[in-house]
Amino acid sequence: MNKARIGLFVTCLVDLYRPSVAFAAIKLLEDAGYQVEVPEAQTCCGQPAFNSGDFGNTREIARQVIDAFADFDYVVGASGSCIGTIRAHYPDLFENDPAWLAKARDLSAKTYELTSFLTDIASIDTVESSFRGEVTYHDSCSGLRELGVKQQPRKLLDSIDGVSVNEMQHSETCCGFGGTFCVKFPEISTRLASDKVDNICDSRAPVLLGGDLGCLLNISGRLQRLDKPVRVFHVAEVLADMADGAAIGEGED
């Protein structure tokens, strides 16, 4: 039987900031029995333009993504917000363009967030990882509310021996990242990040995990500015047993 082919949507932040998340995603998907490819003609899903009201550029970027991933059985990415853009918003962009609307709907229907794909589509319920310890989990907003990602990462984490999730208070409350929001309204953003940091520290878990790199960069940046010893990883790194290196924002020194 031919393996189903997955096109990995890398996401711009993973591409630039943390390639280990993409390698982790590839390992998890290959272990689940899929053939994974990475189309070269991908950059970003267009969300920064979309949420800035620049629908023209968003449409152009969306066409680029639609073309690059048209031939795959599935498209998977390790980010709720990028996948949410493709799944929940691409079709709306082409309301008045029947040909592209059909393509956008095709793409939307086969595109999944990583943990949701692994559990809901690939029916994976256990992963092997040497990671040990207590973690706490931040539910990133787009994954949670646009895609219904909530139990999936927890289910996979629970399958690792010696990993337990200490739920923080208000894990579903926004961390204040919000894409360009974090630099347009830095005071509000910082306050929300500080509240998130308080809840993380109160959970007593030494590690924070999440499924969206944007939020994790924001939270880790605030944790480190406040000298909190909590280490931050993308959940895919832990699930793929690739969290033995430096956490987000940790250096060689």
């Binding site: 591409d15 900031y17 943390r18 990040a193 605030r222 430096a246 987000i248 924002g249």
Partner: peptide, 18 residues
């Protein structure tokens, strides 16, 4: 500055994934 005034900015891990 809007970011780094109140938050550290993580450095890229290595090269780009691509």
């Amino acid at each position: 500055g809007a970011w780094t005034q109140t938050r550290d900015l993580p450095a890229p891990q290595t090269q780009t994934f691509q």
